[in-house]
Design a protein around this nucleic acid. Structure first.
Lengths: 225, 225
DNA sequence: ATTTTAATATGATATATGTCATGTTTTATT
DNA sequence: AATAAAACATGACATATATCATATTAAAAT
């Protein structure tokens, strides 16, 4: 099992603020885990006893609505921490985490994180900044949900995924989502998401390579009204 | 001007984690301010040089959407801190704060807050918990926006205001919002908000006393489908 | 007190989106 | 390879909500 002190992944999250000694200590009690595509990492209502540091892959965070739909609230990729919010508020998780492709994560027990949060102000400030950033993102999502059309939201989702999660060598979006996933991000019916994507295809904004989506006209997608 | 060490308000927010000495120091450089109903406390894009501790009154945090509507994302009341997210991320504010009634706030300079965030882990943990809580709320709002009807969202808004901001002696909601405000919370057209509120009145779920709304049947409002 | 302005209310209609049905294609399973 | 099961696609129609128009009422301003 790899050592946290030497792991590059930590550069991308708050763990970078830890000292060498703290990392060695954490390294000693962390557990690595492989998670298969589609597997649930934790469920809504589950009590988390630590955080996950995502070494590879991507997952979705969703919340079941009363109408039976599973609204996707956020996606967490390689480099990011997973479960920090629930850990800090010491409540059970309000979201379910599901792997969107094969993942590799390290689980760090709560006690270790808490120790560092209380002893290393640099670390807790990093976590604070992280959450402040998430909060800003949430505000934007709320405004989009409330004020924009499905067409606009879907266009923005594609642009967001392109920008943040990148593309494969052939230019297709590296994250593979089902039409239902797209619907659950945007907050619409699966059929509506399908229709809008078909429309984007007709308009030449996107193309599809098998199940993968390729953005053909980013500028137009950004301009969608 | 009152002293922070003796102020009861701090019991309701993260400032309670500060030591007596820290409070005395903050007390020395804070400034009190009265804000009239309708006044803007800070604008979207404005750089905040500190946080506000709300001693009295209530304000709305909103974000202007491209379609010209001003989506209300959160309300901040007496006892809470205002502007902490922007302060921590060291970005300009992504939201505008507007007083919903006459307010009394204390402004605490950024340097003081930062000093304590870096030196008092109890304090920074309190702020962390605060933000974790806000994040959870945001998740819920996103799901509601995405999956519930205007009628449901408006019913929930009334229940939320009733529960969190309380009532006047005559039972009316103590927070006075225009129909436009309700529309901007729920993310709908003003006319739609008016229609739904009229409907609630017809159904006997609420009544109105002048501009004030009184909840007559909380159970039914909670059950609105 | 009168006028002006803003807020609330309601009808008529347009539009976006949801729902249901059905067909096709792709992916899994035997 | 054949079958079953998902995922994707599209039409027809229902419904929620937005928009525009126009009253009515309440609050400000003169």
């Amino acid at each position: 099992m790899g050592k946290c002190e030497q792991c590059i992944i930590k550069q991308f999250n708050s763990l970078k603020a830890l000292t060498k000694e703290e990392l060695v200590r954490i390294s000693g009690c962390k557990t690595s885990k492989k998670i298969k595509k589609g597997e649930v990492i934790f469920e809504e209502g589950e009590v988390l006893n630590g955080v996950y540091c995502v070494r590879d892959g991507i997952c979705k965070l969703s919340k079941l609505s009363e109408n039976g739909k599973d609204q996707i609230v956020k996606m967490v990729v390689k480099g990011q921490l997973l479960g920090q919010r629930s850990l800090i508020s010491e409540e059970s998780s309000n979201l379910q985490a599901t792997a969107l492709n094969d993942m590799e994560v390290c689980f760090i027990p709560k006690s270790e994180i808490f120790a560092d949060l209380h002893n290393n102000p640099k670390f807790s400030f990093e976590v604070l900044q992280d959450m402040a950033h998430d909060l800003r993102d949430s505000d934007d999502i709320i405004v989009n949900m409330a004020q924009k059309s499905v067409r606009q939201r879907l266009a923005e989702t594609l642009v967001y995924i392109h920008k943040n999660f990148g593309t494969n060598p052939d230019g297709t979006l590296s994250v593979l989502l089902s039409r239902e996933d797209y619907a659950n991000i945007v907050g619409t019916a699966t059929e509506s998401a399908i229709r809008v994507l078909s429309q984007f295809k007709k308009e030449g904004f996107i193309s599809t390579v098998g199940k993968y989506i390729k953005i053909e006209d980013l500028a137009s997608l950004k301009r969608v009204e």
